[in-house]
Structure formats: structure tokens, C-alpha cells
Nucleic acid binder design. Structure first.
Lengths: 236, 236
DNA sequence: GAGCCCGAGTTTGCACACATTGAAAGGGTC
DNA sequence: GACCCTTTCAATGTGTGCAAACTCGGGCTC
């Protein structure tokens, strides 16, 4: 018998047995994949946490087979690391890698902004403004609420870029650093900085100025990355 | 009994049973993953080709379990598409998506070139020149030889950028379009165009001119993308 | 003759059992 | 007392069986 099971189940709020025929979910493996990814992105599963096949299987009420497949998918996304027979652990990202990632994200989100400045429809512009207004109003709301609306803003720009492939890749990268990025929201001046930078990005897009949009978005990501590094440095 | 097995095995030159303890390969699933990825990238498995779990298992002398895991990994890389219970097929990329992909690759490889111009070591510069010389000499060699050296050139720039994360992502994208990209090599003026464009990129890197390097690399990718579209248009 | 329904067959999805391999703990020796 | 060897055990890797679902073909009805 496995002693860990009881405590693990208690620590897993978002679990519960998966109905064999969950409607749009598809396969068990895909459902588990999504669930675990959310757990990691939200920070409920912290970097370095060990994932045990049998535990996850017990918790979700299925066998090890779909769990293993979900692990492979997470590993392919670089969200977890499979260490041979030593189990799977949630990947932790070094400061060096975070710097590198934010440089790449700056370029990709910069491209999104540039394309959005050229291609966004009037409706998309209006949507962007609406989201920004909500973000301003949420300035003193709980960090999680602010974070979610913030994400909506970026998502709206991906859409407005009208490049599905770019949107998909950018989203993927975003997910990979989500657990870290989320923490930055709690920093002192980050909320007001974000609002100012977003306003600048939005203005450039509305003004149909691709280069300015690119520049502001890249600057936004650079500053975010620097804030994140400050945070990490402070944790040591 | 499965009638397809015999013919399938005959059509699979790079196969053979996997020794249970293949040295650096790790697990069977990983080995299969690599093998299938190479098959797809090289074009031996064409877009739209159906992959049957049992067939692949028979061919490689293992059970379906590792094959299934390899399929999931390929699906996570977007190299194959899993259609529920309808089997796995090698993903074909639409012209629209190819345009989008080359735009993103242009940005990423452009960033590589820009960073390489700032960061490459003398040894890396020398290596780059050596590869370019070999590429010039291979101008009238078989297309596959030219293609491989061409890839080395780009790989050398990824290395010279000194951003491991960027290199990894760029490589991943490159792999995804490899099956298509390879065909462009056979186009009439592509060899000489490539040599000219590479020379320009290399000159910018050697001259430590980041913006010029970025610009030439992006132009290189744009032209490559356009050539690819011409090729595809001609196939219809 | 065309369209629909239904059943056989094939293929995937999942569970379970066994094999294999690191790792940690225990005892022995120097 | 410290180090090394051995043994045991727990967790992963792989093989196999069963059930559900999708496909395709044949027969029926309109």
C-alpha cells in the first residue's frame, strides 16, 4: 500500500475522478495533460516537485498508462523533465534560461504587436481598448484577477496579428514561463508599470505604427524579464 | 494476420529491431521517436501518410506501448496529427501556415544572426567561414549534400548566438518544415541564391554589424519561403 | 437505382502484469 | 569509525488482453 496517497489526494484541489466519457475532453491522457499543465502554470505544482505515476493515477482514478502518456506530452513541452527511472519532476528554469526566454518572447510578442498594428480589425481594436479599460479598473484588485486580464490583453494582440502559427508558438512559450511570470504581478510597482506599458503598446497599434508597436512590446517584455530576475535574485 | 506487414517492412530501409539495451538511446519510446522524426524530416514518410501502431511495432520489433508514446511525442511537436481513433497521420502544412511559419522563422533566425554578430568568438567566425567554403565547393554536388552543409551553416549561427534556448526553439521550427524545405534545394537558381545570401549574412556577422546580419538573415528566410511557395504552387 | 441502416472487422484506448533498473539501507571488513 | 559491497525494494519500462469506437461493406427499403 502506498502511504503517500491520502495526503497527496488532500493536496490536490482540482482533481476528482475523470468520467470515462468526458465530452469534449477526448482521451484520458489529454485530459490529464491539460490538468497537469494548469497545475504547473498556476504554480500549484512548484518547480522541482516530483510527479509519481501511480499517485497521479490513483488521484484521477485511472491506470498508469494515460498518466505516462500525459507525462510525455508535458515533457515534450518542456514543462516537466523525465529522469529515466527517477521519475518526472516539474522543470525549474535557471536565471540564465529565463533571460534567454524573455529575449525570444520579446521578439515573438514584438512581431505580434507589429503585425497587429498592420492588421487588426476595428472590432479587435475596440476589444483591445475594452480589455485595457478593465485592466485599469482591476489595478487594485487581487493579483490573480489582474494577471488574468493582463493575459487577455496579450491574447487579444495575438489574435489581432492574424498569424495563427505565431499565436500558437507565442502562447506555448508564455505557458512555459507562466509559473514564474505570475509572481511578478505581486511586485510593488509592477501594476502601474504594466498599465503604462500596455497603454503605449495599444496606442501604437491603434495609430497603425508597426515599428513603435514592436518597440514598445519588446521593451515591455524586457522590463518584465528584468523584474522577474530581480524577484529571483531576492529569493536567494 | 496483417497483410500490410511484409510490404511495410520492405519499404522501411532505416529500420530493424531495436536492441533492448541500445547504448545512449535511453528508452524504446525515445528511440522510436527519433527514428520516426528523421523519417518525416527526410521526407521518406510523406505528409498525409498514415502511421499504424501495430505496423510500426512489428517493424521495430517491440510492442505497441512504446510506439504509442512515440506518437504522442511526435504529436506534441506537431509533426503528426492524432485523430482520435482514426489513427495518426503525418501532418501536412498548408500554404497559409507555411507563410506564417517562415515569417516566424525569419524573426527567430534573424535574432540568431543579430546575436551572432555581437557574440561570436573568433573560433566560431572561422568555423562559419570554413562551412561556407565547403558549401561553395558543394555547389554542384548532389542536392542532399548541399542541403546538409547548408544546415550546418545555420546551426553554426545558432551556436554563435550564445542563446541555448533560442537555438533549441529555432531548431525545433526548422525540423518542422524540414520535409518541405529540403525540396527547395532542387530549384533552378536556389543554390546560387543561397550562396549569395549566405555570403551576405556571414559578411555582416564578421563585420560585427547586428542590424545588417538580422536584415540579411530575415531576407534569406523570406526568399526561401517564397521559393517554397512557388514550388508548392507548381505542384498543384 | 439511390440512399440508409446495420453488422463485421480493424484499430485505438485503457487496464493490468511482469521485467528491469536505480537507489537506499544494512551489514561486513579494514 | 569509515568505506564498500550486497541486498532489497520501489518505481519505471514494456508486453499483453480486453473493450469501445470508427470504418467499410452488404443488404434492405423507398
Amino acid at each position: 500500500m502506498r502511504a503517500k496517497q491520502a495526503s497527496a489526494e488532500a493536496d490536490w484541489p482540482a482533481s476528482g475522478r475523470i468520467a470515462r466519457a468526458t465530452p469534449g475532453a477526448g482521451t484520458l491522457a489529454n485530459t490529464l495533460h491539460r490538468r497537469l499543465r494548469d497545475e504547473i502554470a498556476s504554480g500549484r505544482l512548484e518547480p522541482g516537485a516530483r510527479l509519481d505515476e501511480q499517485d497521479i493515477a490513483d488521484i484521477h482514478g485511472c491506470s498508469r498508462t494515460p498518466v505516462r502518456e500525459a507525462f510525455r506530452l508535458l515533457a515534450a513541452e518542456r514543462l516537466v523533465e523525465l529522469r529515466g527511472r527517477q521519475g518526472a519532476v516539474v522543470r525549474s528554469i535557471s536565471a540564465q534560461t529565463l533571460i534567454e526566454m524573455f529575449q525570444v518572447m520579446g521578439e515573438l510578442e514584438g512581431l505580434c504587436a507589429r503585425l497587429a498594428a498592420r492588421r487588426s480589425t476595428p472590432a479587435q481594436n475596440a476589444g483591445l481598448q475594452a480589455i485595457h479599460t478593465r485592466l485599469v479598473e482591476a489595478a487594485s484588485a487581487p493579483a490573480d484577477v489582474f494577471y488574468d486580464i493582463n493575459e487577455e490583453f496579450h491574447e487579444a494582440i495575438y489574435e489581432a496579428a492574424h498569424n495563427a502559427f505565431l499565436a500558437e508558438e507565442t502562447r506555448r512559450l508564455r505557458n512555459r514561463v507562466a509559473a514564474y511570470r505570475r509572481r511578478v504581478t505581486h511586485m510593488p510597482t509592477r501594476v502601474e508599470d504594466t498599465l503604462r506599458e500596455h497603454a503605449e503598446i495599444m496606442a501604437a497599434i491603434l495609430a497603425r505604427d508597426p515599428e513603435a508597436a514592436h518597440r514598445s512590446m519588446r521593451a515591455h517584455l524586457t522590463l518584465l524579464g528584468e523584474n522577474l530576475l530581480d524577484l529571483i535574485a531576492g529569493l536567494d
